[in-house]
Design a protein around this nucleic acid. Structure first.
Lengths: 339, 339
DNA sequence: TATGGAGGGTTATCCGGTTCAGAGAGGGAG
DNA sequence: CTCCCTCTCTGAACCGGATAACCCTCCATA
């Protein structure tokens, strides 16, 4: 079954291809009567514009790209990306934009993917996630001149348009809450140190603790194993922390398990906070106090900005809502002996 | 910066567009010397074939689609899909194929996405996942005549090519293992009952238990909350099971928490098995005995078959490797009093 | 020396839709 | 009645490649 083209519609309606094109695109140049007739025929035979043919003229592919550079094992357990994607797509679908997805293993490979996509005119723009310092991908995208929205801190996004959520506020809220509960030794089990948002959180954490609590930061690769190992080390030290803030939920769960294994009771002996809420944080015992964000909304905002950028509009940096603390059973008053 | 076309290369090389086309596609019709010259120029100026222009001729979009029909919240915590995608892409990338992803909320919407993609010639084929009984999407894809690989049981895939993993064997292995440990009352906390693989597992579970153990099946929507609720009900019944097999890892973790909450010790009083292994299963205490599969490989096989189908080859149904049981700390001998 | 064929290259056309420059028809103003 | 303008529509060119058909040259062979 051959797909219908505007030529088919034209011959049925007894007009030229051009009239059909105008009619279906809402352009002036055809009478309302003719337009209605053409639209009716198009509907009837189920015509859809051939995206390749369209792209060949206007250079618009009606498609944007997203490359994820993390091992599949980690991507799988990080609810963040799927939620982000679903938020992005809510916006794209409304405008008939598609999303091209690619999982890569290095920044070099990711840049290559961008070059391919752009060179082949497959996409009109991209989202850049997991921003690093001196990120080579930023330079590559600038070089290509491809519309791009960086989902990450604007300090490192170069000339690209950025959208980010203020991490400092969330850190301060968390530390303030823990200090109010009497905690004076707080640890942070952070993610990959080369990610910008890790460092931003690190700094905010140090500042927030300054003068009110001892603090220690351990960096990991976001996996449960490293989260567990870090927790084991922290809880084994003579002046062990009474509260630990984890950079994702899987590490927080791993930490919780380690604590139970070491007979450190949560929240009596140890308080635990997870960054980014998820169903996972709620099914363990005790349920985890978490920093909650509306990630689909974050993705939706990013998508709106990318589409605006593609449309040639000017898109200033945009600070999205900060995460807010959702207290649950994993946090409580500091053990009295340790203050 | 305008993207270079074969016309640019042609004028630089002093030949016609056709010669360039032949040279760059490895077709006969140009001398090796000319070919080398053309290829060198193409490399130098960073030429890449415009995918739209190519698609406009051959009808090949060099792109395949995947639509996921589950709420974002569940997609996020299910490592399955991300691992599947990463496996799929390993194969696609080698052949310069891209993957179009869309998250939808209903089968009707999913069919619509297929019609759009196909009507717009955006994709050459699709993967169909989460097969239902009397699945309307199968009929839709057959009607469209679009190459499709069903990742699911062939009994319901109609004329579409299917790839699936034998669930029966995994169920038998699990039940056999639990029975060998002395368990005589085994529960299964299953996923959505309308999914084919749920029913297949249900049947295999009943058969495997037949005559050797009492059994009960509870259906859920895969969320941790329902997994917890099901567990609570099971453990509250007078003749509570001594082993529970969960259809995914998040429910297994939720079940583990409920057990601990109810002072049912795992594995002393209750054994727990999770279907589909993941980092999550390994970070909780005790680590979960799980049914392990190589999901990326599964995705890779599916991708190979879809590409073969698109190339016009005949693709018979294919049974992939069954999951194998990985015993960990969450399973042990049945409590002696209950036999 | 005529002939056939391979090798190397070109021209013309097509894919499906967009866009530009006009061409007729019809109507209002002068 | 003529002039000009607007409205509606059309032919042709174009986007970037693929492909069918054909042409020229050179060399080997009968």
């Amino acid at each position: 079954m051959k797909r219908p083209t505007i030529a088919d519609i034209a011959s049925r309606a007894g007009v030229s291809k051009v009239a059909v094109s105008y009619a279906l695109n809402g352009q002036p140049g055809v009478s309302e009567a003719t337009r209605a007739r053409i639209v009716a025929i198009a509907d009837e035979i189920g015509w859809r514009p051939n995206s390749a043919a369209r792209a060949l003229n206007g250079a618009r592919a009606n498609c944007v790209g997203l490359a994820l550079c993390r091992p599949a094992r980690i991507l799988g357990v990080e609810p963040f990306f799927m939620e982000l994607i679903s938020g992005i797509e809510g916006v794209l679908a409304d405008r008939s934009y598609a999303l091209l997805l690619q999982v890569v293993t290095s920044h070099q490979q990711e840049s290559e993917v961008y070059r391919h996509w752009w060179g082949e005119s497959r996409i009109d723009g991209v989202f850049l996630v997991d921003l690093h310092y001196d990120d080579s991908r930023v330079a590559e995208l600038e070089r290509l001149g491809m519309p791009a929205v960086v989902i990450g801190h604007p300090s490192q996004s170069g000339s690209l348009s950025a959208i980010w959520s203020e991490e400092g506020e969330a850190v301060r809220e968390t530390v303030g809450y823990l200090v109010a509960l009497g905690h004076r030794r707080i640890a942070r089990v952070a993610g990959l140190p080369e990610l910008v948002h890790t460092t931003v959180r690190d700094q905010a954490f140090r500042q927030a603790c300054e003068g009110v609590a001892e603090h220690v930061i351990v960096h990991t690769d976001y996996t449960g194993e490293e989260g567990a190992r870090a927790t084991r080390r922290l809880l084994s030290s003579p002046d062990r922390p009474t509260a630990i803030v984890y950079d994702n939920d899987i590490m927080a769960v791993a930490g919780l398990s380690v604590a139970q294994e070491m007979r450190v009771e949560v929240p009596r002996d140890l308080s635990i906070v997870a960054w980014d809420d998820s169903p996972l944080a709620q099914v363990v015992r005790p349920p985890l106090t978490a920093l909650t964000r509306d990630i689909p909304a974050y993705g939706a905002h990013a998508a709106q900005r990318l589409l605006a950028l593609i449309a040639g509009e000017d898109v200033p940096p945009y600070e999205d809502q900060a995460a807010i603390l959702t207290p649950r059973g994993s946090t409580g008053p500091a053990p009295s002996g340790t203050q």
